Amino acid sequence: MPNTVPTLELDAYLRLNRASLGEWLVAIREISGCEDMACRLHRGSGPAGALSALETGQGCILCIYACQGMDITGCRGVDPVLLLPLAGEPEIALRDGRWQPLAQLTFAHPEDRFHMRVPESGRVMILRPKAGSLDNLATVNGGWQLSACQQLIDCYLHRSPFFRDDNHARLMTSELFCQLSRVAQEESIPVCDCSGLDRRLLRAVEKIRREPDWDFNLRELASHAGVSERNLYYLMKREASITPYRLYQRNRLVRVRYRLVDCQCTVPHISWYAADEGFSHLGRFAALYREHFGELPSETVQWRRNLQTVEKEPSGPSFTFTELQN
């Protein structure tokens, strides 16, 4: 089955793909906790997009991918959020003002009631820290603190493809929010190394990611990267904190997750999808899946089924800001 999932940050925590507007709205409201969030598609129909999300006790990260242009209203919450453009040329309007480019990390106050326009294939990340942790950023929007926050988030994104499992992902995400809070309190900026991976290591990583039919062979992988098996192992441990086989295994699990998230059939063939990626023992596969994503495969499927049920119920507030801006 071809990979139809778009490039999306935190793809191991993909929640929704090729979703209708109704499904997409139900999902983003549930994940963000904003029941009054609304959206309008520029074409009026067709798939809305994809969502990935990771939540910890320190905050939630939500990544949005737009299959087509969309206008989104923020929620009338009590806490601020950070908005980070990742691809395309998204725009933002604050307090019902004019549209302006969302060109860099932006701090949105609850009273701003932000509106966001995401173009087709555009990507935006929303970071919602726990209550009170970023309050001190309110007086220095656009200053050195936001630049420091941008650096920390960039480093987090650089490391995210190499999360070893769910515990590691949540630990690193909690650490990010703690670091952002330290910056908001005007404490010292945490040291963060965002240097690129060794090009030899990149060749190995790309082979693992881009060749789903390839069966793991350390000697072949090392030869492809241009290093010895021993050096490849230590390169990956040193620069990515993960072993070659662990990365290979995780990418296979992610591909199963893609198919489960996409599945809209009555009875999802979890065992078939697992077998296609080389997992022959269903019980062992389910345990590995939960270790890497924090839930069972059946729970991934059920989450989307629940969205489809809720979608049929009366929707929340309608979107009116764009009608005034047309």
Rank of each mutant, 00 (worst) to 15 (best):
residue 178 C to L: 10
residue 211 E to N: 13
residue 190 P to E: 07
residue 213 D to G: 10
residue 227 V to E: 07
residue 233 Y to G: 01
residue 184 A to P: 11
residue 204 A to M: 03
residue 183 V to D: 00
residue 227 V to P: 00
residue 192 C to V: 12
residue 182 R to V: 01
residue 214 W to M: 06
residue 181 S to I: 02
residue 210 R to L: 10
residue 236 M to C: 04
residue 190 P to T: 02
residue 177 F to C: 06
residue 176 L to M: 03
residue 208 I to L: 13
residue 218 L to P: 01
residue 246 R to K: 14
residue 201 L to R: 10
residue 190 P to C: 09
residue 184 A to F: 02
residue 189 I to A: 07
residue 222 A to M: 05
residue 179 Q to Y: 06
residue 213 D to A: 15
residue 234 Y to D: 07
residue 243 T to V: 09
residue 235 L to S: 11
residue 201 L to Y: 10
residue 243 T to H: 04
residue 203 R to T: 10
residue 203 R to V: 04
residue 245 Y to T: 06
residue 236 M to S: 01
residue 243 T to L: 12
residue 230 R to F: 06
residue 186 E to V: 03
residue 180 L to S: 09
residue 241 S to W: 00
residue 217 N to Y: 08
residue 234 Y to H: 13
residue 182 R to A: 09
residue 242 I to D: 00
residue 196 G to E: 13
residue 197 L to A: 08
residue 187 E to G: 15
residue 214 W to Q: 11
residue 229 E to D: 11
residue 239 E to G: 04
residue 184 A to D: 06
residue 182 R to H: 06
residue 227 V to C: 14
residue 182 R to E: 05
residue 246 R to W: 11
residue 239 E to P: 02
residue 222 A to V: 06
residue 228 S to Y: 06
residue 185 Q to E: 14
residue 198 D to C: 10
residue 209 R to A: 12
residue 192 C to K: 02
residue 225 A to M: 02
residue 174 S to W: 05
residue 224 H to R: 12
residue 229 E to R: 14
residue 206 E to Q: 15
residue 229 E to Q: 13
residue 201 L to K: 11
residue 178 C to K: 08
residue 177 F to A: 04
residue 210 R to E: 04
residue 196 G to R: 15
residue 199 R to N: 09
residue 175 E to C: 08
residue 209 R to M: 10
residue 175 E to I: 09
residue 190 P to D: 05
residue 212 P to L: 13
residue 197 L to T: 07
residue 232 L to V: 04
residue 173 T to E: 12
residue 199 R to M: 13
residue 244 P to E: 03
residue 195 S to L: 08
residue 206 E to A: 15
residue 202 L to M: 13
residue 196 G to H: 12
residue 201 L to E: 11
residue 200 R to K: 09
residue 221 L to C: 07
residue 240 A to P: 02
residue 191 V to R: 13
residue 219 R to Y: 03
residue 208 I to S: 02
residue 210 R to P: 00
residue 211 E to R: 13
residue 209 R to E: 14
residue 218 L to E: 04
residue 228 S to K: 10
residue 205 V to M: 09
residue 193 D to K: 09
residue 206 E to Y: 13
residue 194 C to M: 03
residue 181 S to E: 13
residue 176 L to S: 06
residue 193 D to A: 11
residue 237 K to N: 04
residue 243 T to C: 08
residue 191 V to M: 11
residue 198 D to H: 11
residue 228 S to A: 06
residue 237 K to P: 00
residue 184 A to W: 00
residue 212 P to R: 14
residue 174 S to I: 08
residue 197 L to Y: 14
residue 210 R to Q: 09
residue 243 T to N: 03
residue 232 L to R: 01
residue 211 E to G: 03
residue 232 L to P: 00
residue 235 L to Q: 12
residue 199 R to A: 15
residue 218 L to V: 11
residue 207 K to E: 02
residue 238 R to G: 01
residue 193 D to Q: 14
residue 181 S to Y: 01
residue 240 A to V: 01
residue 194 C to F: 01
residue 177 F to T: 07
residue 218 L to H: 08
residue 215 D to F: 09
residue 183 V to E: 00
residue 223 S to Y: 08
residue 227 V to G: 05
residue 237 K to R: 15
residue 214 W to P: 05
residue 189 I to H: 06
residue 192 C to Y: 03
residue 180 L to D: 08
residue 188 S to P: 00
residue 190 P to H: 06
residue 177 F to Q: 07
residue 244 P to G: 11
residue 239 E to A: 07
residue 197 L to Q: 08
residue 174 S to N: 08
residue 222 A to H: 02
residue 231 N to P: 00
residue 193 D to V: 07
residue 209 R to Q: 14
residue 242 I to P: 01
residue 188 S to W: 03
